[in-house]
Every structure is written in structure tokens, then in C-alpha cells.
Simulated assay, not measured.
Amino acid sequence: MTAAQADLPTDLQAKFQKMPEGLRLDSPVVADGAAIWRIARDSKVLDLNSSYSYLLWCRDFARTSVVARDADGEVAGFITGYIRPDRPGTLMVWQVAVDHPHRGKGLAAALLDGLTAQVSAAHPVDALETTISPDNTASEALFTSYARRHGASVARTVLFDAGLFPDDGHEPEVLYLIEPLPH
């Protein structure tokens, strides 16, 4: 449990997934950008951004992003996110990835719960958004189980049709709006 999770009322704490043994939640720092880029690349499912963008993300959006660190301080997984400028109560989750050796332990769910708790402790959040391509069943399961755990509904709409992407073969991005989130 994170410090932000510990500050939640007891009935809400029970809804949050705990970090797997040996891992801890932390905010990313610029030096984590390379590891986050590598994990995104190795995921084989995320759209890989430039290495430069991950460095900027760790600098500019560290308060709305999280990493999991192992006992040696190495990054085991991450979530990047930001508060939507035109909807300040909405946390937009950009990317979620867990390094191969740490998969299957509930780390992504724990990161998502930890991120929500961390951001909510500093800024009121009543909704979470993400986009998921139709073939990404793992992300769909992660976010729908998150919504169930937190008693929220999920509305799905196509945010970006496949034809908007300049690269061939990109699937549409479906917006998942999860709300209301408990305070």
C-alpha cells in the first residue's frame, strides 16, 4: 500500500490492489526514461514513442505517472498519465506496461490503483480515461476490472478512427471513460 492509499478511508482501501512482494510504487525520474522506453518497446503491443518523449514524460508528468521498482531500484513496470486540461477532474492514462519477469502478479492493477490514489491525494479526480485498441484484451481486462473494483461504470466510444492514423494498419483507439470514481 502506498502512503496515498493509506490516507484513504478504510472502505476504499479494501478496493485497492497491493503491490506484489518485493516491489514498491514510486514516481518516475528522468533517469527512468530509458527503462520505460525499453519496457514499452519490449511489450510489443504499445505504440512506441521516441526515447526523448519518455525522458520528457518523466520530467513533466512525474506527478501523474508511476513506476514500480524492484529491490535494486530498477523499473519493473510503469503507467504514464496526465490530467486533461479541459476536464481537470479526469486522469488520462496514456500507457501501461509491465516488464516480462514481473507479469502475471497483478502489478498492472496495483500500479493503476496506486496512480489513482497518488493523483487523487493531490488533485480531485472523479473520472479516468484511457484508449485501447480492439485487439488489446489484456488492457480491456485491466481497465474493466478496475472499474468493477471501484464501483464505476465504463463508457466506450471510438476516439480516433483507424483512418486518422498516418501509418497503415493502425487499429482505431477506443476511449474508455470510467466514472464516477470514489473520493
Rank of each mutant, 00 (worst) to 15 (best):
residue 87 R to L: 13
residue 148 R to W: 08
residue 48 L to W: 13
residue 77 G to V: 02
residue 34 A to N: 12
residue 27 S to H: 14
residue 117 A to R: 03
residue 144 T to I: 04
residue 135 D to E: 05
residue 138 A to G: 11
residue 85 P to F: 06
residue 1 M to S: 12
residue 95 Q to R: 01
residue 47 D to E: 09
residue 86 D to L: 11
residue 36 I to W: 02
residue 83 I to N: 02
residue 108 A to F: 04
residue 102 H to Y: 14
residue 174 V to P: 06
residue 151 G to S: 05
residue 35 A to D: 05
residue 63 R to T: 15
residue 127 A to P: 12
residue 182 P to D: 03
residue 5 Q to M: 14
residue 116 T to W: 14
residue 53 S to E: 12
residue 178 I to S: 00
residue 151 G to W: 05
residue 166 P to V: 13
residue 12 L to A: 08
residue 80 T to M: 07
residue 21 E to H: 12
residue 161 D to A: 13
residue 137 T to H: 02
residue 31 A to Q: 05
residue 18 K to V: 13
residue 129 E to K: 05
residue 123 H to F: 09
residue 169 G to S: 05
residue 89 G to L: 07
residue 78 F to C: 05
residue 27 S to M: 07
residue 48 L to V: 15
residue 118 Q to F: 08
residue 47 D to Q: 13
residue 103 R to V: 02
residue 79 I to F: 04
residue 70 D to S: 14
residue 16 F to P: 05
residue 98 V to Y: 08
residue 54 Y to V: 11
residue 130 T to E: 06
residue 86 D to R: 15
residue 55 L to N: 15
residue 87 R to K: 11
residue 13 Q to P: 08
residue 6 A to K: 03
residue 106 G to I: 01
residue 71 A to Q: 12
residue 90 T to I: 03
residue 83 I to P: 01
residue 177 L to I: 10
residue 169 G to C: 04
